[in-house]
Write a protein that binds this DNA or RNA. Structure first.
Lengths: 123, 123
DNA sequence: AACGGATGTTTACAGCTGTAATCGGAGTGG
DNA sequence: CCACTCCGATTACAGCTGTAAACATCCGTT
């Protein structure tokens, strides 16, 4: 369950998560082409590696495969977030908030959203 | 200025940051030995790679080197934090807070600390 | 039946990582 | 002066990453 996904692989996962339905390799490539500048071969490599890692599964559809995520985005993102906060901030979120605040990486909207979340938590 | 530091290398940087003074390779190894189980050779490799990357600098002290960080921890941590939030949360911190909250990864102290920080920001 | 296109699989290859062993030069005790 | 030790530098090597080309196979068309 501890699937590590590289930056490039993540691009493919994001595409599948965003699609909300199984996609063929070609479809994935088309949707990624706009951002990154990958050849179809590269996308296929990513799909194979992700399948090998168990991050996605594929179902046969005649000649081709239909790929879909095998893990939920929330689960993956939550896992990575805990890892990150653990690694650099001793597992506490507040120092991260402090650091980003210090660097003016938080806008008013973001701050308000966080406050609302925390207020919710206390009730 | 965009120094990438791997997990293992980070262990060495943390040691130097924590030391607050230049250390020899042997000293670094001693201080790390408790956590990780690295040979002195491995620590030396890390020091060389970090020096090559410009993450640390060394000064000659007779026959050996005294190593010290070339970048400040706050700068590195801030950089990585922005990268991370950018990569998984579209650059906004609130969704990260939401995710961790959802997974009960925030304790009361942490929450209180964050609220205090944000309150400070608004004044 | 042969050919070309679509598709997954295999192979490629350089750079980074984790983890070290080994080499070569300098200083030290005898 | 010589063997030994300490230290940085060089070399090693497998696994992961980014990026892709080549290969094998099947399907539909000519």
């Amino acid at each position: 369950m501890d699937v590590r996904i590289s930056d490039a692989e993540l691009e493919v996962m994001e595409t599948l998560w965003a699609a909300g339905q199984p996609l063929t390799a070609t479809e994935v490539a088309e949707r990624i082409a706009s951002d990154r500048d990958w050849s179809l071969a590269t996308v296929k490599t990513m799909l194979s590696r992700l399948a090998a890692k168990g991050a996605l599964k594929h179902r046969e559809d005649g000649r081709r495969f239909l790929y879909s995520p095998a893990i939920r985005r929330e689960a993956y993102v939550g896992h990575e977030s805990r890892r990150f906060v653990e690694k650099l901030f001793g597992g506490r979120l507040s120092p991260l908030v402090a650091r980003l605040a210090e660097e003016d990486a938080l806008d008013q909207d973001d701050i308000a959203a966080i406050e609302a979340l925390l207020k919710e938590l206390k009730s």
